[in-house]
Design a protein around this nucleic acid. Structure first.
Lengths: 100, 100
DNA sequence: CAGTTATATTTCTTAATAAGAATATATCGG
DNA sequence: CCGATATATTCTTATTAAGAAATATAACTG
């Protein structure tokens, strides 16, 4: 599954948002989501296959971690579009868009 | 259809890429894509519903135009993740790994 | 080993989506 | 109005994805 497809699902975006605060065992993610345990597990699998998260075992727990490198690909796709609204903002509030 | 869902389909991303060069009639988009006319028309509809393109009539042609504002939403979603690969900006924001 | 906890996989059902073919709508030139 | 062009909308069918429930696997505990 491509990163774009993976991000199409709101629950998966939410899982990534949760992982932004740091790595977490699957159980905590299940508790934080309004989804069944198998449901979360399946979405985590999709995120793994998209390369957006990685997992390591710690005893019987599976610790999930955000893999933001793949989001950089998305960011790169977005880059040539950015000037379309950056130009508009430039006129209003100055030159924000200097990073790459 | 949300922008995220709209972008999940590669042909639709390609249509947006084509529109980056400027507005174009549907027919030119059909010619540039390796898809049937109805196929392109349907993807354009999805992009319209996601707010990613707009259309205006010019005679019997429909001129499509990129609406990059909606991509700004995606850019905004991505923003809190950007720190993860933009290591050189760490000094600005501090490190996020502490609170795990 | 048996029981328990943590997580993953399978199965089922249902809903969404895609492509292709055929057809419909709208606009133009005569 | 007619024929031609440009584009959109069905319709059908196949694939895919989602949630729920049940079950499986793997590791820890005693």
């Amino acid at each position: 599954m491509s990163p774009f497809e993976a991000l199409a699902e709101p629950n998966r975006r939410r899982l990534l948002d949760l992982l932004r605060a740091g790595e977490r065992p699957a159980g905590e993610l299940v508790a934080a989501m309004d989804l069944s345990q198998p449901g979360v597990s399946k979405h985590l699998k999709a995120l793994r296959e998209a390369g957006l998260v990685s997992v390591r075992a710690d005893g019987q727990q599976r610790i999930y971690r955000l893999e933001a490198r793949r989001l950089a690909d998305l960011d790169a796709w977005l880059k040539p579009y950015r000037h379309f609204w950056a130009d508009h903002l430039d006129a209003l509030e100055g030159h924000l868009e200097r990073d790459q």
